[in-house]
């Protein structure tokens, strides 16, 4: 059975990974032998400088999902390279590092530092974090997406993946802009902007007022966006948005995704990525499919 996936020059042993921000820097997960079976690891987004994150409360439970406004709390790329990367490199799973700059210059500086660090399979450009009080996200502007991807692509020694936002009129326009600028892949979707109000106190539930919605509640939205984007681009699509089970992941693969990521599902079931992988294998065996490529985009329309 062939499950391997190629994104640019990078090869991944199978199509199941974990979405950025849901799997670390948590040493506890990395202790698990099961982690070694994943197709890729994507640790929490790193920025050029350390960020302390947003004021609490940072999360809230919603119907079939959650809101979060963590604010990319992270130690900064230098500390990441010095302290986290050595441990991550020891895990025999390809590493996709998620990065976020607050300007093109910052994105380029981070890329240079990671170029020098080595041991990375691909970069994921987080163009779509909704929780940083920026007026516009890069991924809400085709021109900005194109310009940034082009510049990073020019200097990066690794394949470059653009992570897109669902908070747009037409995500396929941004996906095509990323592709045409040289991106090796696109990942979608990041969270949908949302909010909650505590009626007793008349205050927002989150310290940041708004946050990003994730979990099973957003799966149909994510699935449609992946379906639409995969039709328009030739580069691989990494799909995420509410994946909890193998059936969820298979839907994304049939819609055209090359890889799938479990995100918020990890919080409820840390075993979910492995369950997803085993479930995909079981499905392929049952339906006598020996290459994942045969499943990709295999949706049958009415």
């Amino acid at each position: 059975m062939n499950l391997t996936v190629k994104i640019g020059s990078a090869v991944f042993p199978n199509p199941v990974t974990v979405a950025s921000g849901t799997f670390g820097h948590a040493k506890k997960y990395y202790d698990l032998q099961e982690v070694q079976q994943l197709g890729a690891l994507i640790p929490k987004t790193v920025t050029l400088l350390p960020q302390e994150g947003n004021p609490p409360p940072r999360i809230a439970e919603t119907a079939a999902g959650m809101l979060n406004a963590i604010g990319i709390e992270n130690p900064g790329v230098d500390v990441f390279i010095e302290k986290d990367l050595p441990a991550l490199k020891k895990i025999p799973v390809p590493l996709i590092v998620s990065v976020l700059g607050h300007s093109e210059e910052q994105f380029l500086k981070i890329t240079e530092k990671l170029n020098a660090a080595g041991g990375i399979s691909a970069l994921e450009l987080n163009l779509s974090c909704p929780n940083l009080q920026k007026k516009n996200l890069v991924a809400q502007d085709a021109g900005a997406t194109s310009s940034l991807v082009q510049k990073v692509k020019k200097i990066s020694r690794y394949p470059v993946i653009a992570k897109l936002s669902p908070n747009v009129t037409d995500i396929t326009v941004i996906a095509v802009a990323a592709q045409d600028a040289g991106a090796d892949g696109v990942s979608l979707i990041n969270t949908l902007t949302g909010m909650l109000i505590n009626t007793r106190t008349r205050r927002p539930v989150l310290g940041n007022v708004t946050g990003g919605l994730s979990g099973p509640a957003i799966k149909p939205v994510a699935l449609n966006m992946v379906y639409q984007a995969a039709k328009k681009v030739k580069i691989p699509v990494i799909a995420m948005g509410g994946i909890m089970t193998a059936d969820d992941a298979l839907q994304f693969i049939m819609a055209g995704a090359s890889m799938t990521a479990v995100g918020t599902g990890n919080f409820v079931n840390p075993r979910a990525p492995l369950d997803v992988l085993q479930g995909i294998k079981a499905y392929m065996k049952k339906h006598k499919i020996n290459d994942i490529v045969q499943l990709r985009g295999s949706l049958i329309l009415p």
Binding site: G21, T22, F23, G24, H25, A26, K27, K28, Y29, K44, E52, G53, P55, P56, P57, R58, I59, A60, E61, M66, N68, I70, E73, T264, N266, F267, P270
Partner: peptide, 26 residues
């Protein structure tokens, strides 16, 4: 605090401390 992962991964249950935000779960 309200927690999601419980394992120090999501950083959702962080509280302010004299040495910055720290996770209640981890």
């Amino acid at each position: 605090e309200v927690m999601a992962c419980g394992l120090g991964a999501c950083l959702g249950c962080s509280i302010p401390t004299v040495s910055g935000y720290k996770t209640v779960c981890h």
